[in-house]
Design a protein around this nucleic acid. Structure first.
Lengths: 343, 343
DNA sequence: GAGTCTGACTGAAGCGCTTCAGAACATCTA
DNA sequence: TAGATGTTCTGAAGCGCTTCAGTCAGACTC
């Protein structure tokens, strides 16, 4: 079934008896030709089944593609299953939405970010990176390609727009809250690339490092379990490790709500109660936090706003704007029922 | 700051003293040149900051772009907030993931599907469409462009791969379950493009039509409220309308779990109890259904599998495969605590 | 009526890459 | 040693489009 070649600008041009440039103008610069001719060209195009200028060829000629790339430090599926990610993406999508731009998601390995080969082939003219490990090769490829870059929750990179929240400050709030409630024995649940106790070792994610630092500022040293990602199952397993320590922590500081949800489950698994036996604090304040059992005390960060700002920055860079100062969004502590006075 | 022009294949070729074709081969067909030369070329490229063949130019020359497009009948943000959508997308992403393909999301207006202009510019060489209205202009554009198409939950289209579930059958199960419990007065909550009672009018979505037909097969005619989308808030508002009818329905058939969650809330709003006063059945069996208050009786459909199959079909079409027979996935009724015998 | 504008359209040079049909040369084969 | 066979590399023709510098005819000015 080798169908006849698809029509191109040339086909239309000769069918309509005009030059190729004129057909191009009919689509892109209506003011460059008479309305009547334009009309005729469009009709001719329709009649021979021409669907308009090919986007790839157009991109090559104009050197931009009206697409915003998105890279994630976790497998792409996290974009849809982890609320903290999907809410950010939601904000990003709604910004990009109004401008005929597509959102190009680059699948990523589990080892921190999309494969370089994927990034090298992705057709986008600005890239938003969310929570990649600091040394993600994907970032190098983006910069090598000379694409403008917006990073969310990541360390400073020259010539790059940035959106972030006060992770350390938020973490301090969480820890201070527990401290005031009388807790002195803590367990910390962080997320990174591999599972295990974090003994002095540093996390791969800037976010994690900052939050840990914030916790430490208040509670001093405490055992830290690093999960190989941020979801309930991993949080549950990690919390078990922490709760198995002697003496058992009376409070769990979790670097994300997803981890905290897992921790709530782990506490229940042991036949203990939250907050009576163990207090749990999360980070993010995803919508579920309010409806958790019990409702989760957590650090709120404006997730939608984060995505939205990133989108705005991306659009600005697309128009040749400069990165400008980093955008820093506020955090706040939301006290709910998962924390209580140490009895 | 007009930086020096970015290096191209040509730049590398002359810097390395070889032909452009050879540089291209160094990247794409290592077997076409000696290892030593290839090595030298790659080094030269690195030294002058060449990041590899430009994806757009490559796509133009090869006429494919290794990208899978995705169109949604709702605003893009629904992809991240509606679990029934995100789970499907998750399945799709994980399939596409292994192949260096990107996922191109096309933002869509609220009026059913991406704008034609967006679709016309999107760079993808196969498109997956999920739950678009039957007459979505976006579909026409895809076909006009001659792109292979995979549809999920949509009516038959010639030359198109299709994934679907037995919506009517599932709806019949849901209705039969309530019927057996003794219910005779029903309210139906459907989703479509606008809000209001559906008097004879047909829904815009095939899925909705089939589910409604399934309900009717069992319960005969019943008042149907169409919500302008599928989320809790709309479900809550719609359920209020249905519960305001006299005589009040004793059972609510909801065309999605999200609507059902809203319905649960609406029942509570009236000071009534589920299932004591009103039974509620959903459709989808998203993970939250199990943890709803009370746990939701619903029709389970394999959402992840749906996305995965769509992904496989897309990849097959990409390789020039034929659409083949539609893939039909099974549904089943999951009985939980939101339905009870009529007292 | 010569000169100047203006609007409508076109020719041709790219955009950066792939790929195919060779060319050039070295290596086997009989 | 002539011919066959490989291997390695190149020239040139596209891929489908945009865009800039013109061309050309007609309208306007003085």
């Amino acid at each position: 079934m080798d169908r006849p070649r698809k029509p191109t600008l040339d086909t239309v041009a000769s069918a309509a008896g005009v030059s190729r440039a004129t057909v191009s103008n009919a689509y892109n610069r209506p003011d460059q030709l008479s309305a009547a001719l334009r009309e005729r060209i469009l009709e001719t195009a329709a009649s021979i089944g021409y669907a308009g200028p090919d986007p790839v060829a157009r991109s090559l000629a104009t050197r931009h593609s009206a697409a915003v790339g998105f890279m994630l430090g976790q497998p792409l599926s996290a974009a849809f299953s982890d609320p903290a990610v999907s809410i950010v993406l939601d904000g990003l999508a709604s910004t990009v939405d109004g401008h005929d731009h597509c959102l190009v998601l680059m699948p990523g390995g589990t080892d921190g970010g999309p494969r370089p080969s994927t990034v090298a082939r992705a057709q986008a003219d600005v890239v938003v990176a969310y929570s990649l490990p600091d040394d993600a090769p994907a970032l190098d490829v983006v910069r090598a390609r000379g694409l403008p870059l917006v990073v969310i929750d990541q360390p400073v990179l020259p010539d790059t727009a940035r959106v972030e929240v006060d992770d350390a400050g938020g973490a301090r709030m969480a820890a201070a809250h527990l401290w005031e409630l009388g807790h002195r024995r803590y367990g910390v649940l962080a997320f990174g690339l591999r599972a295990g106790f974090l003994n002095g070792r540093d996390g791969a994610f800037r976010v994690t490092r900052d939050r840990l630092a914030g916790y430490r500022d208040v509670v001093g040293t405490a055992p830290v379990w690093e999960c190989a990602g941020s979801n309930r199952a991993l949080g549950r397993a990690g919390a078990r490790e922490l709760l198995a320590l002697t003496p058992r922590p009376t409070a769990l500081l979790c670097a994300s709500d997803e981890l905290a949800f897992g921790a709530l489950q782990a506490v229940r698994d042991l036949g203990l109660r939250v907050p009576h036996d163990v207090s749990v604090v999360g980070f993010d304040d995803v919508p579920e936090a309010e409806h958790a059992e019990p409702p989760l005390t957590t650090v709120r960060q404006p997730l939608t706003e984060k995505g939205r700002r990133a989108g705005e920055l991306a659009l600005r860079l697309l128009d040749g704007g400069r990165p400008g100062e980093p955008t820093r969004l506020p955090v706040s502590l939301v006290e709910r029922a998962s924390t209580a006075l140490l009895t």
